[in-house]
């Protein structure tokens, strides 16, 4: 999915990290902090084969936009991009991208870290972990067996 200048997005394809940075390009910015999340091959001691992400897309986009706007109020940054993927993602594939731009690095680091935490806390996206020991819904810190998976 092309993001054509949009600052938040849910995508089915892989991220274009460079394009996300370019969307924030600003001569005032001396710092661009990029957080890129990827699927880890191990979770809670189980070997992960893939993650299956789903979202309540309309709300997820609105919640990501709210987080972006709150970040701009809370931190003296210049701008921010937040993107999340949905669908089946194999080990090593990108899952989440947050880029914060600032005049200086400190506020960009702080805002980026804060925004990643907020996305994980409140954007309606869920993952199922497909492991060697079965499939599990991840709900916050809980892991619940998926008897249908």
């Amino acid at each position: 999915m092309g993001n054509n200048g949009k600052k938040v997005g849910i995508s089915r394809g892989s991220f274009d990290v460079q394009a996300a940075i370019e969307r924030l390009s600003n001569p005032k910015a001396g710092a661009y902090v990029v957080f890129l999340g990827r699927v880890r091959g191990e979770s809670r001691g189980k070997k992960v084969r893939k993650l299956v992400y789903e979202a309540y897309e309309e709300m997820a986009l609105r919640e990501m936009e709210r987080i972006r706007e709150e970040a701009l109020e809370r931190f003296p940054i210049l701008d921010m991009v937040i993107e999340h993927r949905v669908g089946e993602l194999g080990v090593g594939e990108d899952t989440i991208l947050v880029v914060a731009s600032g005049v200086h690095r400190r506020e960009a680091f702080d805002a980026c870290s804060w925004a990643v935490d907020e996305v994980k806390r409140r954007v309606p996206v869920w993952k199922r972990e497909v492991t060697d020991e079965g499939t599990f819904w991840i709900e916050g810190k809980r892991s619940v067996p998926d008897y249908h998976g």
Partner: peptide, 10 residues
């Protein structure tokens, strides 16, 4: 109205 479990994005 939507009902959903604790989220797990990221």
């Amino acid at each position: 109205v939507a009902l959903f479990p604790p989220v797990s994005g990221g």
